[in-house]
């Protein structure tokens, strides 16, 4: 399967000397949802902006549907829609005019039926004649999405689309993303809400300090990097771990009533049976057992911390 976006050895150094991207290579497959995770200033927006043509890369190449973004910019850009992070909208225009403007700007002839349906899907139809500066922040965010979708792009970049929006709108947005995925649109999003990436993305990329630390299928990422923990609740409390349990990767809770055992799910043996036997031999009685998988957020934090 050919990637719809192929980023090869991309570098970006700003005039200030800041190295925003350092040798980033990435393939994005058609129809997938890729979530880019990373702390502020990691290079997520620079990467998106480079692909969209807003930032000029210092070195490297990007192709979209097999076309180079520099030499065949017309072909690549008409395939892409971008929802920027900031609420960058004009003030005096109406919703309808600004969405029509976006469609025309990307070379598409007028299609009122499509735009009406789009505004309807984004719950904007009643605001079609409203002036932009009178809209709430959430409504403006919807307008930005409508503008990005106005020319029926095959690829859409959502740069922090749910930053600062209320729960209802966030749910609406993910409903829209789901609908776009069903329509075969490739979606690349950056988000701080890791649980959302965990829920909606097919693959996850982690960027830190301009470097792409990894890109992997979400499930295999969690499988490979996710550690499992066994929480062992004790009957009664202890002040310190018995000497016989020191060889195990155990952490005693502050109140002395719980032991947490971290183990590798990929190892030949998790050691749980032996541990339980050792706990019993140490004269401790169990009250309850509970196991939990590392969340994507924990994986992300671990990766970034390791990189730092």
């Amino acid at each position: 399967m050919q990637p719809i976006i192929s980023v090869k050895h991309l570098f970006k150094t700003y005039a200030t000397g800041h190295h925003a991207l350092k040798d980033v290579s990435l393939d994005i497959m058609e129809g997938e949802i890729l979530a880019l995770l990373g702390p502020n200033g990691a290079g997520k927006t620079t990467l998106i902006s480079s692909i969209c043509g807003i930032v000029t890369p210092s070195a490297g190449s990007v192709s979209v549907a097999g076309y180079d973004i520099i030499t065949d910019y017309r072909k690549t850009r008409e395939l892409i829609g971008l929802v920027p992070q900031e609420l960058t909208l004009g003030a005096f225009d109406t919703v309808w005019n600004t969405v029509s403007f976006s469609r025309g700007l990307f070379g598409k002839k007028s299609n009122p039926e499509y735009l009406e349906q789009l505004l309807h899907d984004l719950s904007l139809i009643e605001k079609r004649d409203s002036v932009l500066m009178t809209l709430s922040g959430g409504m403006k965010r919807r307008v930005l999405i409508a503008k990005a979708l106005a020319h029926e792009p095959q690829i859409i970049f959502l740069d922090e689309p749910t930053a600062g929006v209320d729960v209802e709108l966030r749910k609406d947005m993910w409903r829209i993303v789901e609908k776009l995925r069903e329509a075969g649109v490739t979606i690349i999003l950056t988000t701080h809400y890791i649980e959302e990436a965990e829920e909606i993305a097919d693959r996850v990329g982690v960027i830190n300090d301009g470097m792409l630390l990894l890109v992997d299928d979400k499930k295999s990422l969690m499988h490979d990097l996710g550690k499992k923990q066994l929480e062992i609740e004790l009957k009664g409390t202890i002040e310190q771990l018995p000497e016989s349990l020191s060889e195990w990767d155990l952490v005693l809770s502050d109140d002395g009533g719980q032991l947490t055992y971290t183990y590798d799910t990929q190892a030949r043996s998790t050691g749980i049976t032996a541990l339980l036997q050792a706990i019993s031999d140490a004269g401790l009685s169990l009250k309850d057992l509970k196991s939990k998988q590392s969340s994507l957020e924990e994986i992300f934090v671990n990766l970034v911390n390791l990189d730092s």
Partner: peptide, 15 residues
């Protein structure tokens, strides 16, 4: 558009 930031749209358009 430079001041408001909406220039991003023109810069990312096939134009």
């Amino acid at each position: 558009p430079r001041f408001t930031g909406t220039i991003y749209e023109v810069l990312s358009a096939p134009i």
